[in-house]
Amino acid sequence: MTLRTRLLITAACAVLLAVAATGYTLHAAGRAGRSAQGTALTLGTPGRIVFRDMRMGPGKDHLASVAAAAPDGPRSDSGLVCARFHYAAGTGLCLRNKTALNPSYEAVVVDAGLHRRRAYSDVGIPSRTRVSPSGHLAAWTVFVSGDSYGGTNFSTRTSVVDVRTGALVPSLETFTIVKDGRPYRAADVNFWGVTFRDDTRFYATLATGGRTYLVAGDLAARRVTTLHANVECPSLSPDGTAVVYKKRVRPASSGAPWRLYRLDLRTMAETPLAETRNVDDQALWLGGNEVAYSLPGDFGSDMWKVPADGTGTPVRFLTAALNPVP
């Protein structure tokens, strides 16, 4: 075989591989439904789910919506780019990259029509977001060093803002800590994963001394109190009686340390959920007895759901998506 023939064969193979890869990408994107670019999107629209679109292409990381009854159907793209997002009662919270010469992030409060209301610059690397049920308060957690909860070499900052007045609590680390019934102070304190009960009370994760705790917080008293050990990223049920959270059941070196659990706040009884895979997410209650959470997928993240009482089987309900808000 001559050199010219070998070169022709090599070039032909490269073209075939490129065509096949392009075809697969388009096919995979098509399975999730095409986006209508720039479509007006209103948060809280009945029958729609809003989420961060994870598919590759011009709409990646944009907030999008899809019919709840047909989650594999066509998506409407809002044009708003977020790294983390949450919404409740007319208020949305978007953590996003701030366009500038030097990389930085900002927290942007938006209304139901995604119009900017308030913004806070240089907040750190986005991690968690939550809005209170009334829409009056918003909380965000960012990494200020490190970028993973898997190990111990990270530091977080959790802030809470009253979106009506702009009054800001820059860091929960300024709050009084009551641990095991006694006042507690330590240099290694970290907070993350706020979930609101109302406009005064909340739950969150406290980390100190190599352990994590569920804490009950009081914004008016500027105090948190430990309730239960080995709790991360709690999510409060709509009726306020339980939280679903990440429990560390394996060492960090395993690469899969967490499993989802439910904690009854009245009895402190724990129940493992039917999802046995490693979940590094703050679960979201979908209403009724189901919670949603993210797992790795072809486009970075897919959304799954499972009953919150330990029964049932996990079901994938959104492909290439993150931070859903029903």
Rank of each mutant, 00 (worst) to 15 (best):
M1S: 11
R4D: 10
C13H: 03
L17M: 04
A29L: 14
G33S: 05
G33A: 04
S35Y: 06
G59E: 15
K60Y: 10
K60H: 14
V66P: 03
A69N: 11
G79C: 02
L80T: 02
F85Y: 14
F85W: 14
F85D: 09
A88F: 06
N97R: 10
E106L: 11
G113T: 13
R116E: 14
R116G: 04
A119K: 07
I125P: 08
S134I: 12
G151C: 13
N153Y: 13
T156V: 09
S159R: 11
V163I: 04
R164Q: 13
S171F: 06
S171H: 06
T176G: 07
K179L: 00
R182W: 12
D188I: 05
D198E: 09
T212W: 07
V215Q: 03
R222W: 02
R223Y: 09
T225A: 10
T225P: 11
V231W: 04
S235V: 10
P238W: 04
R248L: 07
S254K: 07
S254C: 12
L263E: 06
L265Q: 02
R277P: 00
L286F: 08
N289D: 15
G297E: 12
G300K: 01
S301F: 14
P307S: 03
P314Q: 00
R316T: 00
F317C: 06
T319P: 04
A321C: 04
